[in-house]
């Protein structure tokens, strides 16, 4: 059973791993690559344990911009902090 459903905007891009990541309760990170996302894969796995999450995203977002290295629309939400008055 999927541990959690996580929106892609809540995942963080990790340069070192070349993957979108989200904290796993074991202490490691759930991971999914852009290539996986392009293929419609929606399961992000943790390399250290049996748990996995379901990633909620729009596949087309990844297909359309495959040549663009820094796709602003897909970077984690932290890149676009909401300014608080």
């Amino acid at each position: 059973m999927s541990y959690d459903d996580v929106e892609i905007e809540d995942m963080e891009w990790n340069d070192e791993l070349q993957a979108f990541t989200y904290p796993c309760p074991c202490g490691d990170l759930f991971q999914i690559t852009k290539e996986d996302l392009k293929l419609g894969e929606e399961i992000a796995r943790c390399p250290s344990c049996s748990l996995y999450i379901t990633v909620i995203y729009n596949m087309e977002d990844f297909l359309d911009h495959s040549n663009q290295k820094n796709n602003k629309g897909l970077e984690p939400s932290k890149q676009h902090p909401i300014v608080v008055a």
Partner: peptide, 19 residues
């Protein structure tokens, strides 16, 4: 603060100063 964990009565993506 997306899940309400800041307790500031609204949904907010992130806050970088204490509220």
């Amino acid at each position: 603060g997306k899940r309400g964990q800041l307790g500031i009565s609204k949904k907010i993506q992130t806050v970088n100063l204490p509220i």
